[in-house]
Simulated assay, not measured.
Amino acid sequence: MQFELIRNDITKMAVDAIVLPANTKLREGSGTSKAIFEKAGRKELEKACNVALKKDDQIYMGGAIPTLAFKLDAKFIIHAIVPKWIDGEHQEYDKLSSAYLSALGLADVMSCESIAFPLLASGHNRFDQNIAFEIAKESIEAYQPTNKLKRVLLVLYSPKAMQIARTQGFLIEEAIDDVYILGIDENYVSPGQRALNDGMELAGKFLDDGINMAMAFLDDQENRKKILEGGIMIAQIAISVVLKK
């Protein structure tokens, strides 16, 4: 599985799944959440979230729920339920790692080949960015896909996040300027969105099948248990690495 870092606007990413940092009510938040709701289509996405809540009444911190991506240049949005920083004594690290693993597991089950994450919980959820980055890195690198997942992108934005990644020796593709230039042109339609527009009925059936597979995966309590246990282990590794620096 290929792990890449890129500086970009996550709402512009042409991938199979985009991860949204979510709350347990799947309501629009601030920052990245607000941007994704706006670009995907707030009315459509809110309706899809309400339907998802009715299907799964056991949404938990560190879990994830899929919906369609609507106007984004992606097939799915995976809503990863991320914790807010309290004091480090309320399983914040474990739940953040679990959110990454849950999103990766759903993407894999839904036959996604690519997924893009923002740096989860590093903004309004107030996680230290060094810890947030280490948990993201350790969680993604630890995941072993069993289906079609081939490419995972961590989408960075802030100068501090960029500095943290570069300090660790990561090469980062910077595409944000070109993406925003294209975004100014209202006539521009990305290839991925054009394909969905041209074959919406067929694409809709395919995407619904993917979400149904994801919900079946979530219904299995054993799957949830394994993800949570994996999150605890990875968070312990990530924190030990940060403390040694």
Rank of each mutant, 00 (worst) to 15 (best):
L45I: 15
L45P: 00
L45W: 03
A48L: 11
N50Y: 12
V51A: 12
L53S: 07
L53Q: 11
L53P: 05
K55Q: 06
D57M: 05
D57S: 06
D57V: 10
I59Q: 14
M61G: 10
G62V: 06
G62A: 15
G63H: 05
I65L: 08
I65H: 05
P66Y: 03
T67R: 00
T67D: 00
T67Y: 01
L68T: 14
A69F: 01
K71N: 12
K71F: 12
L72W: 11
A74K: 14
K75F: 08
F76V: 06
I78V: 11
I78G: 07
H79V: 08
H79A: 03
A80V: 07
I81Q: 01
P83M: 14
K84M: 07
I86Y: 01
D87Q: 03
G88P: 01
G88C: 04
G88K: 09
E89M: 10
E89D: 14
E89K: 06
E89I: 07
H90P: 00
Q91K: 11
E92C: 04
E92L: 09
Y93R: 04
D94H: 13
D94Q: 14
D94R: 15
Y100G: 00
Y100Q: 05
Y100V: 02
A103H: 02
A103C: 09
A107E: 05
V109F: 01
M110A: 15
S111R: 15
C112L: 11
S114I: 04
I115C: 05
F117M: 02
P118I: 05
P118E: 07
L120W: 03
L120N: 05
A121F: 04
S122F: 04
G123A: 10
G123M: 12
N125T: 02
F127H: 07
F127T: 13
Q129A: 12
Q129T: 02
A132K: 02
F133A: 14
E134H: 13
E134P: 09
E134N: 15
E134W: 06
A136D: 04
A136T: 02
A136G: 11
E138D: 13
E138M: 08
E138L: 06
S139Q: 08
